[in-house]
């Protein structure tokens, strides 16, 4: 039976104003029950105010094999980081 239930990825928003963050995955026969299972598995200690569930099959993920062409090429381009600005002293909380 287990093998027949598809895998779902669960994203939980912990507070208003924050983004949904990946919490884990679960098995469920359909979206409605996936949402309910997610509620039971990932929000039972008041972790969330909103849940998204997505069929794992529907997620297109980058492959570990593509790590270098995808991400490595950014490592020698420090000018893409906003680190060259002089911050005025009176600017707080940066």
């Amino acid at each position: 039976m287990s093998s027949e239930w598809p895998l779902w990825e669960v994203f939980v928003r912990s507070r208003r104003g924050l983004s949904h963050v990946h919490s884990g995955s679960l098995h469920a026969p359909d979206a409605e029950l996936a949402l309910r299972n997610a509620r039971d598995l990932y929000t039972r200690r008041q972790e969330g105010v909103s849940i998204w569930v997505v069929r794992a099959d529907d997620i297109t993920a980058s492959s570990p094999d593509e790590k270098d062409p995808f991400f490595e090429t950014a490592s020698d381009k420090p000018y893409r980081h906003p680190t060259f600005y002089e911050l005025p002293d009176e600017l707080a909380h940066m």
Binding site: M1, H27, A28, N37, D40, L41, R44
Partner: peptide, 12 residues
């Protein structure tokens, strides 16, 4: 329970 997820649901 028939499934792990359902196990948690029923015991919850």
């Amino acid at each position: 329970a028939p499934e792990l997820e359902e196990d948690v649901a029923l015991t919850n």
